[in-house]
Write a protein that binds this DNA or RNA. Structure first.
Lengths: 340, 340
DNA sequence: GAATTGTGCTAAAACGTTTTAGCAACGTGA
DNA sequence: TCACGTTGCTAAAACGTTTTAGCACAATTC
């Protein structure tokens, strides 16, 4: 049904080659008249090049995949949006894949994406797993670029972009300290997650700068999802000594709100809380959440630039290890109470 | 770099045809030994068929595009997730496109997707525009299936799936009435939106069944976003006579929470509130929101089934006009107070 | 021993492009 | 008139598959 190059060529008694070159603005000696004619006919026939055929010969699909653990988490949704928008300006398409925080899913995806349907992959990978390394290396061997985002998988050297988590944690910690808090609990990301550890470390550093030590009993391991925030929140709310909580992401912070309220120590009144991500919802809460805002837009653009840059660079050796960390900022709202 | 059919064939002194047939389980007479050999070699060489080449000859890309107005709205994120998951079980990939509620973007997308890179499109289109009709018809002419979701664009006959909005509105209205409410305000979607009008109509019907009339002063027009909910909420909270609010989506309901609280008439204590969508976040609120739950998962599956069914059916004539409305359900939480 | 059937494969075309090498016709300068 | 350059195009290969038609040989039947 759809018109092909040949259709145009035939109609004008030209060869497909000529038409192709004209339509692709290749610099060849073609008189204006012919060119006009070809363009007009293409428009008339509603011609669109067949992407499959083009890709087959050019070896580029103009597709980029984004792998995120949970598209329902608005942080990743936002990320996806920016990545997609930015990609579009570069004529690339986004193939979005959500994995439900399942490492096996990541690997399965990697495997299937390798089947030459994307030029590059931007991955927010879920965990640490030896299989990652193998699979990622296979993908790289097939000349498909990878940029890791937000989280690092150790053991592979691919460019990485993300937030400066340590700095963000420090921001959170400092804010609490500055408001007079000394007994501060932290709900971390999963133990294996580098980002969570860094946020924790940053917070710890801030406390130490103020002469406060963060002892082990104050640290609760979460998994970045609501439920673990709620559970940790319940335990924390029972500890009379604790006055503030740093949740390593907003989703868990929401759980803390609920737990705190149920325990009769509401956030912003009795207990203080700082989150991380600054999700859209955080400002909508009855007591809006003070949170560390990730520069999502910048990170997205950066990831794309690096990925596409590598692709263009062709050579394929990844821009050595690190794409760079972007510093987050603190958005102060009403969830932290100032102690006398 | 990547191994091709020919590589396998050469290595085993077979023809590409043979290898292809074996790997695709075509029923041909091939002895077990050869088959085993081929499969083993394929695994060893880490063979993956080149999707572009396959698509070029089969005319199927195994990609489906989903167009949504705003991926940051968790309703659409959820939709995307389910569509993607379900598609994956059918070996299809999801290409996600978000348009920022921009009709021109929809049209641009339609145009670009037509370049044979997807087998079908599931679209939550933003508006009404004569250009839609033309563009959609062109897409259909190229044998690319379309299923419209959640919103209808009049004038084209493509299958449609969505929630039974009238029924949902009725559910909300009835719930309020059953809890003794008589003075009920409604915050609608944008005036032009069919879905919003239907939710309102359903609610009105429920009230009338109970002998309550919904007069014009009780109706506030919103746009499905937080801010208009908040604004309407502020006005409503000042009207002493009103005891309950039906917000036509959860996003706006969140605004009402805030407004109500600021006005000293908190939801679930003084004022009652019912939302629509049942976003993930609604159950996380301090006073969890009673909301009409859209059967997102079912809608997603349905859309995919219809799309793929049409594709398989080949003939291409769309399953006449309507794919069907799925009834929503009411999720009762704590935002509605029972009047004496 | 010829005819028939079955087995295990292959050749070749097709899909719709891009790209490289080069050809025919014409014009120009000497 | 010949050599040479320029102009406007084309032929053909290549990309990696799928698919159709059918071939060569072996085994079986009569």
């Amino acid at each position: 049904m759809a018109a092909t190059l040949k259709d145009i060529a035939q109609r004008l008694n030209l060869s497909a080659a000529t038409v192709s070159m004209i339509l692709n603005n290749k610099s060849v000696r073609i008189p204006k008249e012919t060119e006009e004619l070809v363009r007009r006919t293409a428009r008339e026939l509603n011609y669109h090049p067949n992407r499959m055929a083009v890709s087959l010969v050019t070896k580029r699909t103009m597709n980029v995949a984004l792998i995120v653990p949970d598209i329902q988490n608005t942080f990743f949704a936002e990320l996806a949006k920016y990545v997609g928008d930015y990609l579009k300006t570069k004529q690339y398409n986004l193939i979005l894949c959500s994995t439900n925080y399942d490492v096996q899913d990541d690997i399965r995806l990697l495997r299937m994406l390798r089947a030459q349907m994307v030029d590059g992959i931007i991955g927010v990978f879920t965990g640490e797993d030896p299989e990652y390394t193998r699979e990622i290396e296979r993908v790289l061997a097939d000349k498909i670029g990878i940029v890791m985002m937000d989280k690092v998988v150790s053991g592979v050297t691919t460019p990485y972009v993300g937030t400066d988590n340590f700095y963000g944690g420090r921001l959170a910690g400092r804010h609490l300290v500055e408001n007079g808090h000394r007994r501060i609990a932290v709900i971390t990301g999963p133990l294996g997650s580098v980002s969570g550890q860094q946020r924790l470390a940053g917070c710890r550093a801030a406390l130490e700068e103020a002469g406060v030590t963060l002892d082990a009993s104050m640290i609760y391991e979460g998994d970045y999802q609501y439920d673990t925030g709620y559970e940790a929140g319940k335990k924390i709310a029972q500890r009379e000594d604790v006055t503030a909580v740093f949740a390593c992401n907003d989703m868990m912070a929401y759980g803390v709100y609920k737990a705190a309220q149920e325990a009769g120590r509401p956030i912003g009144k009795e207990l203080s809380l700082v989150g991380f991500d600054d999700l859209r919802f955080s400002s909508m809460l009855e007591i809006p959440l003070t949170s560390v805002r990730q520069p999502v837009r910048e990170i997205a653009a950066r990831a794309v630039d690096i990925l596409l840059g590598n692709l263009a660079g062709g050579a394929g050796e990844p821009a050595d290890g690190v794409g760079g960390l972007t510093p987050p900022s603190l958005v102060v709202r009403e969830s932290v109470v100032r102690l006398a």
